[in-house]
Design a binder for these strands. Sequence first.
DNA 1: GCACGACTTTGATCAGGATCAAACCGGGAA
DNA 2: TTCCCGGTTTGATCCTGATCAAAGTCGTGC
Lengths: 246, 246
Amino acid sequence: MNEIAFDSRECGSCPIRHRAVCARCEPDELDILNNVKYYRNYEAGQPVLWAGDQMEFVASVVKGIASLSQTMEDGRTQMVGLLLPSDFIGRPGRDNAPFDVVAVSDLTICCFRKRPFEELLTTTPHIGSRLLEMTLDELDSAREWMLVLGRKTAREKIASLLAILARRDASLKKRPAVNGMAFELPLTREAMADYLGLTLETVSRQISALKKAGIISLEGKRRVVIPELEILLAETGDDVDGGLIP
Amino acid sequence: MNEIAFDSRECGSCPIRHRAVCARCEPDELDILNNVKYYRNYEAGQPVLWAGDQMEFVASVVKGIASLSQTMEDGRTQMVGLLLPSDFIGRPGRDNAPFDVVAVSDLTICCFRKRPFEELLTTTPHIGSRLLEMTLDELDSAREWMLVLGRKTAREKIASLLAILARRDASLKKRPAVNGMAFELPLTREAMADYLGLTLETVSRQISALKKAGIISLEGKRRVVIPELEILLAETGDDVDGGLIP
DNA sequence: GCACGACTTTGATCAGGATCAAACCGGGAA
DNA sequence: TTCCCGGTTTGATCCTGATCAAAGTCGTGC
């Protein structure tokens, strides 16, 4: 859930080869020719990996959004992570995907063959320690999300999700989150429900309620405006400082 | 959630110094004298760390159970992890505890000063990669738990918890989980509720229901007997193979 | 333009778990 | 022994969010 970048300006568009791996950039054509690095595109809704699949690559999201999710036999599904641009996909040291990875929107990922990547991990210690740091951050966010799933009301859940998306959007655009900011909702009501442990009807109703209360407003169905950030944050149930929006 | 051991037989009782760190054992008196390694004891209910506290050590659970948890201002709390013997506490690279750590039962942990430990990480690459592997495993279990919190019914939640505890108990005693096995419930009804995102009354009711259905039986309030593992597993809602009990 | 389909909203009703309340159990101290 | 107290069980009722159902919105292709 965190970019694996050391210096993102210095390098090209590929987070893995250029932003993560090489401290000094080399042209990546070589890697592409050697089939070590390659791009993949998916349409919204397409699966990238099913749980249990062999993973012959690690990857990094370049554009679009992917989800990590689990589905029970009877169809109940729970999203366990959202992967936004610069997020990392993969498990060095494991061969099989632990969860389903699905393109939520149109998606481009940059893949890097697993073996060469694992080589790099052993030969370049700071990559490993960066990866450990990222993994610990993801573990913390997963645990924070457990509070949302286990203890928050539907309204608090929606507010928490909107707060996270607002924050992500701001940081992606490299500007601070401010009152009056607007952003595109990249998820359908159903995807939100799967992330929050709710039904899509409840999601819709709570969004309507927040709108009616003046806490958010919508432009169309997918664009959210937040007149006052503090007021939205108050709805999350978190302490205003700390919590999901540091 | 996973022991950081390379060869546990070869060494003394301290998981960090002896089982994790030194490939070849040295006597640990030296470290104790240097105040690099030390033990701490806590009584049931005592806090080990509050979220935000400076952590000057990493540690490993030697005996007893600790919990990681978060509490909202109004008192709602969610446990985000159970730490059993050989589990690791700490965040190399971070100074502050992200969550509360509380002794659930009487607890002994073995602490290792953070700086020397971080030194070791940089000088001994296989420790780092083992730590990465452990962290990835914990991330997977956290995500699996998100399915429990977000989508399972109260009965399935209880069954899932019992299944996990049964499995942990078996692996701690280094024998397989079998039909008819019995184990001590190390948690109060309230602690179970906090782990499962339920109230203690619901926990109690569902345990009674499982008892009435013959899926478990109790000896006293705290000892659980599982006549048929498969039947309990069927109640978890997971696929019988895979899932929480691999 | 129109029709279709995917997504969303809204309504009516239901049910699972929360809440409030009281009783029960078992162990330890006086 | 008796009392007390933390933990547990059970009961009655309430309420949030699920479920079932229908209608509304919007974009796309014909």
